[in-house]
């Protein structure tokens, strides 16, 4: 009995040594797999500063709230740059006009796992016309430059972005669905973004609206209980909880208010639980 205990202790010690050893081995190149599961959207060199910029996303691009991941490498050494100030600018060039889109710059100059997360709400689809400009000011060598990528954005099924003209006649409102991305029966975190079209180039997040949600099964005519209305968290994001009582097709109906004034009550997002 005692012998086996000793053996066990030795075994555990050995194992932990091996595992910590492995972790240390990995340390120098921790980002080998940081883009696993991501799709490379675009890649190109900056006009100055000798940097290779790659844009990754979770999927090909759809007209919806889209998290993007910017990877920056020193084009000479091919080392990943993890300390950089990055600004993005999405643009849509149409025949008669050009406009931007709601977007979120990386919040930090330090990369997460070698990537700089940011986001764009592509409020409309476009096989051609969308571009994304990425400006990088890296803090390792002090290089600075930018690169512009053409993007193809297609329409998702079901619709994940609604652009509505408010009932009270204000600026156009972009409502975008963020989650649940894998909806399940039960309680789901629910998140949308609200952005206002102040001008062609200015689409700031709205922070002071009230949002009510009402999930309904259109083919059954019933809803679900105990949903939590989304409230503003940051940058135009509204977080709440949506409950689904069964699989099938649900519509999450929205009612968006500015104080007591109804801004919109037509928008909804369809969610299918398989």
């Amino acid at each position: 009995m005692k012998v086996s205990m000793k053996l066990l202790v030795v075994g555990v010690a050995l194992m932990s040594a091996i595992f910590t050893g492995c972790e240390k081995d990995k340390d120098p190149d921790p980002k080998t797999n940081n883009t696993d599961g991501l799709t490379l959207i675009a890649s190109g060199y900056t006009d100055a500063g000798s940097m290779l910029v790659k844009v990754w996303a979770k999927d090909s691009l759809y007209s919806q709230y889209t998290p993007l991941f910017i990877e920056v490498k020193d084009s000479a050494t091919n080392t990943v740059i993890e300390d950089a100030h990055i600004e993005i600018m999405p643009m849509m060039e149409m025949t008669t006009m050009t406009h931007s889109a709601p977007f979120e710059n990386p919040t930090s100059a330090t990369a997460v796992n070698g990537l700089f997360p940011c986001a764009v709400v592509f409020q409309m689809p476009g096989e051609m016309g969308w571009t994304l400009n990425v400006m990088v000011q890296e803090n390792v060598n002090g290089g600075m430059g930018d690169v512009t990528f053409p993007l193809a954005v297609i329409t998702p099924t079901p619709t994940r972005t609604r652009v509505v003209t408010p009932a009270n006649g204000g600026n156009k409102l972009v409502i975008s669905y963020v989650q649940p991305t894998s909806p399940k029966v039960g309680i789901n975190d629910f998140e949308i973004t609200l952005h206002s079209k102040e001008s062609m180039d200015s689409w700031p997040g709205i922070e002071n609206y009230t949002v009510e949600i009402d999930p309904q099964m259109p083919s059954m005519g019933h809803g679900s209980p105990n949903n939590v209305n989304p409230t503003h968290s940051a940058n135009g994001h509204y977080n709440g909880q949506v409950n689904f009582t069964m699989t099938g097709v649900w519509n999450v109906n929205l009612r968006i208010m500015d104080g007591t004034t109804v801004v919109d009550s037509t928008a909804y997002f369809e969610v299918t639980l398989q």
């Binding site: 099964m217 083919s219 059954m220 069964m246 699989t247 099938g248 097709v249 299918t272 639980l273 398989q274």
Partner: peptide, 8 residues
């Protein structure tokens, strides 16, 4: 339901 995901 017709032409929709089944509800379970």
């Amino acid at each position: 339901p017709n032409n929709e995901a089944p509800m379970f």
